[in-house]
Design a protein around this nucleic acid. Sequence first.
DNA 1: ACCTGAACACCGTTCAAGT
DNA 2: ACCTGAACACCGTTCAAGT
Lengths: 225, 225
Amino acid sequence: MSRPEPVSRRARPAKPPLSRGAILDAAVAVVQKEGAAKLTMRRLASELDTGPASLYVYVKNTTELNALLIDRHLGELDLTWGESEPWRDRLERVLDDYARLLASQPGLAAAALVTWPDGAHYLDLLELLMRLLRSAGVTGERAARGVDLLLQYATASAAEWAARAGGEQELSDLAEILDAADPHRHPELHAAGAALFTAGSPEERTRWATRAIVDGILASAPGGA
Amino acid sequence: MSRPEPVSRRARPAKPPLSRGAILDAAVAVVQKEGAAKLTMRRLASELDTGPASLYVYVKNTTELNALLIDRHLGELDLTWGESEPWRDRLERVLDDYARLLASQPGLAAAALVTWPDGAHYLDLLELLMRLLRSAGVTGERAARGVDLLLQYATASAAEWAARAGGEQELSDLAEILDAADPHRHPELHAAGAALFTAGSPEERTRWATRAIVDGILASAPGGA
DNA sequence: ACCTGAACACCGTTCAAGT
DNA sequence: ACCTGAACACCGTTCAAGT
């Protein structure tokens, strides 16, 4: 009884009760420690000192787990817009933030491509993009499709970066292939050379692509079709 | 000796010798029979009546296997252009063909997103796209980035379709989430409604997106940056 | 030299059985 | 009612050992 705060000092019990929240916390911890590739139901269960079966009481499957995790990280992003920042700058910034978020953990981007990270924070992201496009004069169906397209680009880019960082295939491999292009069968590629396809930093390339897509949305016929 | 063509009638021996070609043939057969999700090294080995280790003599890993398979299917596509067809129609057609090809087999699109399908046929595809963009007045670095962007879109779309067809998540789930958008926190989404995001057939949406991207490439500054 | 059986180190998901 | 041990049905990749 001499120590006044034994509870706060050793507050974590060996096995806190399971819950969606606790599972997500553990998932974040696993990803931080070992990377998203290691985030599996089994690894997650062992982090929580239980068997994998127990997780299925709270999470439907791996896809849902990833969707929950993405939404959680989305909550850490700034998804507001004060309108003092030009819409185009804000749009580029939020897409860059989103892509970085997904790319930071290899498995996330692939998951986002295939599943809707359906949560409150994802809706915040959609809402922000819709607002930004509206202020650019794009509304209705065209805006919805634009948002779709922009997010798809950000997600696919992130998946690419993550794969590249994972080291599967080097950019130099690609360069080699292009440099070997037969001048008769592939005159354009031969003339262009590999440098063209690998020029610029990823950030700079992304900025170019985002601008091109936004320009495309602005240029597309307002009536749809 | 009474039968004249015993060899041709039972030409296939129980175990044809392994080779890159034979492995790829077997891969095509497996995918045709059971879908690309079932195309695994182990399943492929069993199709060839051998152990999985044997495949590694000819194929570096699963990623390379998928890249080879994509290039093989690319060989079945028409990648020529007679210039009688308007460049924009031809461009939309080839992207649609490519996306359909990748979507036809769930695992392929995901693989293409992460790996360069480095083969002669993939170079044909790049060459065709470069030619089409050139005839639209886009050359050099801008063309290279445009090709990159167009292919990324086609690949990501295919990955999405394939996932949807795989049935992971219904469009109706998404509609439910959007319909439940809080009018105060998400006024744009609330006003837009789920219908906006799900309007139109996939084909029609793809056509819109392709056009928007092409418009964007045309609009983007020729000087780069 | 070439090939491969068997092993290593994992997966996601289910369900019968326990508390 | 809630939870989970154990099993089912798989993975990719490596390497020592065989021919």
